[in-house]
């Protein structure tokens, strides 16, 4: 297993040849409940998702805006555990080969024990891990274990990152670099900073690595613009907003997210 090519790397290699930009939706495991979140994942996959980012809910999501905070709160009420999350991914693996990125804060991983997390994540079929409060400086304690399992550790870059940070992070990065489009927390925004494009170019000048853009993206129009220079777009809050708006109507959650996903994918074609 450890010698296989990582699915994330494989996808970006193929998309680069084809000149395509990947769509990576984000959802929280267990929001609004485990079953529905699994159905949402399935709906996203059949409506254009190229990878999927699964958020593991944490009690104190310091880098997240209101929408994802509330999503985590709903999931936490359902008492989602790490075992549930691995089970979720393993079931997803039975129906799809799509690359799975596991997104969380460090404490739940640390509490599970970092080495055991790497074993279980690999067994479940997780391809990448993004820990939002684990900058390169503190990343070794996780990296030493997931490297052995051929799981990519995804790192963030931000508008505040200067050239020395870009150099440092691209030297650590695997899979792709997640560029945070705005100086701020997660959440849909109507307009995005103009500096985004030049920043992505700056990163690519330093290292030829795929760059995904997330935080703030919410519309097909934005996606269509970004596809000209980025390798992936990541959308979270906008999708989760559909859950929040339809808490009493699960069919409508699936329907609205499917339509949205299809619209984003179409704009990237």
């Amino acid at each position: 297993m450890a010698n296989n090519i990582n699915k994330i790397d494989e996808l970006f290699a193929n998309y680069k040849k084809a000149g395509k930009t990947a769509f990576i939706p984000f959802i929280s495991i267990g929001d609004p409940d485990i079953k529905t979140s699994f159905d949402i994942a399935k709906a996203l996959i059949s409506n254009g998702a190229d990878m999927i980012e699964l958020g593991y809910p944490f009690s104190d999501p310091m880098a997240d805006g209101k929408v994802i905070q509330k999503s985590y709160e709903r999931a936490l009420k359902n008492r989602v555990t790490m075992a549930d999350a691995f089970n979720f991914v393993a079931r997803l693996r039975q129906i799809s080969e799509i690359p799975v990125i596991f997104f969380t804060y460090y404490n739940p991983i640390f509490a599970y024990r970092t080495s055991e997390f790497a074993d279980s994540a690999s067994a479940a079929g997780i391809d990448g891990v993004l820990v939002v409060d684990l900058p390169p400086e503190e990343s070794f304690e996780l990296k030493q274990f997931i490297d052995k399992k051929n799981i990519d550790q995804i790192f963030l870059l931000a508008p505040t990152s200067d050239i020395s940070r870009i150099k440092l992070i691209t030297s650590y990065a695997k899979g792709f670099v997640y560029y945070v489009s705005v100086t701020g927390v997660t959440g849909a925004r109507r307009s995005l900073p103009a500096e985004m494009r030049s920043k992505v170019e700056e990163i690519k000048n330093i290292k030829d690595i795929p760059v995904g853009i997330g935080f703030g993206i919410s519309s097909p129009e934005q996606a269509e613009e970004i596809k000209n220079y980025a390798d992936a777009i990541i959308i979270g809050s906008k999708i989760i907003q559909f859950i929040e708006n339809n808490l009493n109507d699960k069919n409508n959650i699936i329907k609205s997210i499917s339509e949205f996903s299809y619209g984003i994918k179409s704009s990237l074609m």
Binding site: M62, V132, D133, P135, A158, S161
Partner: peptide, 20 residues
């Protein structure tokens, strides 16, 4: 030099804040 007191301390924060 990295802000650790033995195994404690450190800088477990979002990249956006690292430069600051």
């Amino acid at each position: 030099s990295k802000g650790h007191f033995g195994e404690y301390g450190g800088r477990y924060i979002s990249e956006t804040l690292m430069p600051a």
